[in-house]
Amino acid sequence: MCATKVLFSRCFAVSKLNTPILSYIQQNSMSVYPNYYIEPIYRKETQQELVKTGEISKYSHIPTKATLNGQTCSDSYDPVIALFTNYVMRQGLKALAREQMDKCFENIKRLQLEKYHKCTTEEEKLKIELDPKKVFHEAINNSKPLLQLTGVKRGGVRYQVPMPITDRRSEFIAMNWLVDAGKEKDRKVRFAMQLARELVDASNNTGKVVKRKQDLHRQCEANKAFAHYRWS
């Protein structure tokens, strides 16, 4: 027994010395997936588009990451709404955030229907959008800023310099403003109701959020003279 132990220890010592036997695994910082794993294409429509363009053969030999918890291929799923729900969410209470969003859409529908039935002429009725999802997308589109002010320190003075922003960033700002506007309310009014009103207003290019966007644009216009600090 002792002899075998000695033998084993010898073999182990040997194994420590040498170069790795197992093939080298490509590490991707702290991620569990190696860096060549692609994001999953979980929407049926996107996959069909890829089939049409013939691009799908590119992905046939590349492994994919697992789909996330919140992503599905169901018809009711909308990636933008899912993103907005995540911005509404506080402290990881996703179920609550979803509930609020559902109520908000219901409220939008009610508000629009109310307006619709108050209309007297056919023309006015046609102008009112009854699909809450379309209202939502329109509201976000309308509240997206084009520019942003960033502090730049030159000669000890901090200048507010207008900078162009990416689409993703402007979308984030618009959504954040909308959530903020939903929270700015009377104690007796519910968040879902206030958010619905703000969304309807923004979809009509009026309301707090659109005003905030226009203010920012005005500020950027005023600080046009500092724009060169962006590169000099």
């Binding site: 569990v32 999953p40 996959q47 492994p63 697992a66 789909t67």
Partner: peptide, 10 residues
């Protein structure tokens, strides 16, 4: 597989 359904989430 492409939709990431067959990848175990570790």
């Amino acid at each position: 597989r492409l939709a990431g359904l067959l990848t175990p989430d570790f």
